[in-house]
Design a protein around this nucleic acid. Structure first.
Lengths: 147, 147
DNA sequence: ATTAATGCAAACGGTTTGCACTACT
DNA sequence: AGTAGTGCAAACCGTTTGCATTAAT
């Protein structure tokens, strides 16, 4: 399961655009794919080093740029404001982060659409729900302590 | 209009907590109050220098910490992920940022509540709508170009 | 007189850049 | 062979910290 169809596609897509495919880039997309949703740039560098100890920050960040330009990756901002990357398809889902217990989880499709609808209501703003992590307090924490 | 009632209150509140009130702190809250909503830390430093050229980053950031601990200031994250501060009362309003035209504006109370309600629906998550700037495309931009 | 707060200057962490070298095509 | 991509190392930017000094109480 190391040379997936998906990887092949990415490589070909890159070639189409006149880009070259390198082991480093493969590593980045592999690691990215293995990260279920949101990874920090620095995180990614670190994780890449696990499979390729020679990984350099510059290469990772440059690769992320390329992948994003290819439309294969999106970046957003986590609860702490740090850049966060995720491989597509994951575009339409956002994240919630509880500032009290520190947990983070996804906003399911239905709620995501409800939020989008609420924002669209007045003047047609089309929110990119996946771009930022919403912060607040989860049900349990909110219930546990007062307002 | 330089020594407002509000300022006096802040100073007294600080004193109550055993803190000292300094010209630098006064400058920070003044500048903050004059900034209609969201200011970056670095921004704030710069703006403070306008009224007090001797302003130091460390002092500004430390002051922001204090003010936040006093509950007078909140920090959040802007469209670019940078830290952003705003003076209360402004807690319950969020910001929208159009990634296409670059405009930023506030989420009015009604929509803010609608969003909160949408997120609360499933499991009681209480979003802090003011903590992050939501990113997307404004009505005009969305209408102008296709999806 | 106490001791909180300041200012400096240096450290920090994540990200970006210039440049010579490597390697994909 | 030609040029896109790499690795290194240094720069960068916003923010944080240690420490001696200043000033609010």
């Amino acid at each position: 399961m190391s040379d997936t169809a998906a990887s092949t596609t990415v490589r070909d897509l890159a070639r189409l655009k006149g880009l070259r495919w390198t082991p480093q880039r493969q590593t980045v997309i592999d690691v990215l794919a293995a990260s279920d949703g949101h990874v920090t740039g620095a995180d990614l560098v670190e994780r890449c080093r696990a499979s390729d100890p020679g990984t350099t920050p510059s290469t990772v960040y440059r690769t992320l740029d390329v992948l994003e330009r290819l439309g294969l990756v999106r970046h957003g901002h986590g609860a702490n404001g740090r850049e966060e990357y995720h491989a597509l398809p994951a575009g339409r889902h956002g994240h919630l982060h509880c500032s009290e217990c520190g947990a983070t989880w996804e906003i399911d499709e239905r709620r995501g659409e409800a939020v989008a609808e609420a924002l669209r209501a007045a003047d047609g703003f089309e929110v990119d729900i996946g771009h930022v992590t919403l912060v607040g307090r989860c049900g349990s924490c909110a219930a546990a302590s007062p307002a």
